[in-house]
Computed example of a mutant assay.
Amino acid sequence: MRFLFRRFLILVMTLLGLSLLIFVAVRILPGDLASVMAGLNAPPERVEALRSQLGLDRPLPDQYLTWMADLARGDFGRSLLTGRSVSVQVGDRAAVTFPLIGLGLLIAMVIGLPMGCLSLLASKPWVRSLVHVLAIVGGSMPALWGGLLLILLFSRGSGLLGIFPSQGFAQGGWSTPGKALWSLVLPALTLGLIIGASLMRYTRAALADMLGSGYMDMARACGMTRTHALLRVGLRLALPQLVSVLGLTFAEMITGAMVVENLFALPGLGSGLVSDLGNRDLIAVQSELFMLAAFFLLVGFLVDMIHRLADPRLKAAGEGGSGTSTRQVTA
Rank of each mutant, 00 (worst) to 15 (best):
31 G>E: 10
129 S>F: 14
141 M>G: 05
117 C>P: 08
125 P>M: 04
111 I>K: 01
124 K>Y: 12
140 S>F: 11
145 W>L: 15
126 W>K: 04
76 F>L: 13
37 M>A: 02
60 L>M: 10
51 R>Q: 11
128 R>S: 01
139 G>R: 05
115 M>Q: 02
91 G>T: 12
73 R>N: 00
142 P>H: 12
112 G>Q: 04
104 G>N: 13
92 D>S: 06
53 Q>K: 10
119 S>N: 01
32 D>A: 01
109 M>A: 04
123 S>W: 04
71 L>V: 11
33 L>E: 14
88 V>G: 15
135 A>P: 02
138 G>T: 06
124 K>Q: 14
35 S>A: 03
55 G>D: 06
101 I>V: 09
37 M>C: 01
129 S>L: 13
91 G>R: 03
44 P>T: 06
149 L>W: 14
104 G>S: 09
93 R>Y: 07
83 G>V: 02
109 M>F: 03
81 L>H: 02
101 I>K: 10
142 P>A: 13
107 I>M: 08
45 E>T: 10
100 L>E: 13
86 V>P: 02
111 I>R: 00
38 A>N: 03
82 T>D: 03
129 S>Q: 09
118 L>K: 09
74 G>N: 07
87 S>M: 12
36 V>Y: 06
97 T>S: 04
120 L>R: 05
57 D>N: 02
122 A>P: 06
29 L>K: 10
104 G>H: 12
105 L>D: 01
143 A>L: 09
114 P>G: 08
40 L>T: 15
30 P>E: 12
38 A>I: 10
87 S>P: 14
113 L>S: 03
125 P>I: 00
128 R>V: 02
43 P>N: 10
106 L>S: 06
149 L>S: 13
117 C>G: 07
46 R>G: 11
116 G>C: 00
67 W>N: 01
75 D>Q: 06
32 D>M: 06
38 A>K: 08
29 L>Y: 15
114 P>C: 12
119 S>K: 05
75 D>N: 07
43 P>Q: 05
